[in-house]
């Protein structure tokens, strides 16, 4: 039997593919609750906002740090209160080590720099795990080809329309989710639950479903504390003198340009509170950091509105608490005349 390919063959194939795609999207978005979101870890999306930040002036705000600064601050609420939407340059799973150097040393920005401190990541420098991730997206910004920029310009219009485009459920991740039991010494990579949604401004909000689903929250807690995690974080935090000297110097460069600086320690609870308390004792890390830099600092435990916050998965705030946290932060900054 001969198959003479023509428009009809292609249309039929494409029609079937689209039906399959609709079913697939229905499954992941409606049944499994994956949000329709921009890719949280897109290097291109970060680079786009880093490019835009080059136009920022002395009245603007740039937020840097790890996922806690990224998820816990609502930049749209900030905009509605202050009339200025911050540039969100925090990035999950990374230290701000390289991005800070990029912003402070390679731009003229002299506005308010808000830096979130997540101890397990913040105190990593150079090419170590958390800092290495930051290096990757800074390098990406400078090495992007025109072809990559074109791809991003097209893909960013498709990405937020579909739930299944989340990289945590791409083909590679789906292979990792097959149910075959492992050998004793091998573990599957984490199967991330659908926790947050990010918009085109890189503003992140926890999803309503995740806020209510204790099973997903528990799964996320299990990911945070895999068997090797506490030991690794402890190793990352050595050479404290080097770390403090580095941040002191780099922050001073920003202040010397006429910039303003705020350092935050966002809320944690549960096992994170317990573990970080042991591995990164406040007096040894946070207090020393604050003393070494002439800047405004805000530790969540020091303020009545935030000290009892209890993130659903111990590390990131739900929408309600995120808004409270944002309002509190803005009020404190305004009290210090760091914000209008």
């Amino acid at each position: 039997m001969n198959s003479n390919l023509n428009l009809g063959s292609f249309a039929a194939a494409m029609g079937i593919a689209i039906v399959l795609l609709i079913c697939y999207e229905y499954y992941w978005h409606t049944v499994k609750h994956w949000p329709r979101s921009y890719d949280l870890e897109s290097l291109d999306h970060w680079s786009e906002w880093r490019d835009k930040m080059d136009d920022a002036g002395s009245d603007d705000v740039v937020i840097m740090g790890s996922s806690r600064a990224h998820f816990d601050i609502n930049i749209h609420l900030w905009d509605s209160i202050t009339g200025t939407r911050p540039y969100m340059l925090a990035y999950p799973g990374s230290s701000p080590f390289h991005p800070l150097a990029d912003v402070i040393e390679k731009s003229d920005f002299n506005g308010l720099l808000v830096v979130g401190v997540a101890p397990g990541l913040f105190y990593t420098l150079g090419d170590t795990w958390g800092a290495g991730r930051g290096k990757a997206f800074v390098e990406h910004r400078y090495k992007r080809t025109y072809a990559q920029k074109l791809n991003h310009a097209i893909y960013k219009r498709i990405d937020p329309l579909l739930g299944y485009t989340d990289p945590t459920i791409n083909m590679e991740a789906l292979v990792d989710r097959m149910p075959f039991p492992n050998r004793d010494s091998v573990k599957n990579p984490p199967a991330w639950p659908p926790m947050v949604r990010m918009d085109k401004y890189r503003n992140v909000r926890m999803t309503p479903f995740f806020e209510q689903d204790s099973v997903l929250q528990q799964r996320q807690k299990d990911i945070w504390f895999g068997p090797d995690e506490p030991e690794r974080k402890n190793k990352l935090a050595d050479s404290i003198d080097v770390i403090m000297d580095y941040y002191s110097d780099i922050f001073q460069k920003h202040l010397d340009k006429g910039g303003k600086l705020a350092i935050l320690r966002p809320p944690v609870s549960g096992k994170y509170l317990e573990t970080e308390g042991k591995l990164f004792p406040r007096e040894k890390y946070w207090d020393r950091l604050v003393q070494s830099v002439d800047a405004f600092s805000f530790h969540y435990a020091d303020h009545p509105a935030t000290k009892n916050m209890d993130p659903p998965e111990w590390s990131h705030l739900d929408r309600h608490d995120s808004d409270v946290y944002t309002r509190t932060l803005i009020q404190l900054l305004q009290d210090q005349n760091l914000l209008k």
């Binding site: 001969n2 198959s3 390919l5 194939a13 494409m14 079937i16 485009t165 791409n170």
Partner: peptide
Amino acid sequence: IENSPRWLVISAWAVMLFGLMIVQTSG
């Protein structure tokens, strides 16, 4: 391709197109 039944070719093509739509690698 030319000697396979039309329904089979269209089905295989559809599966591949679907695979390309969902694979989402970063290029």
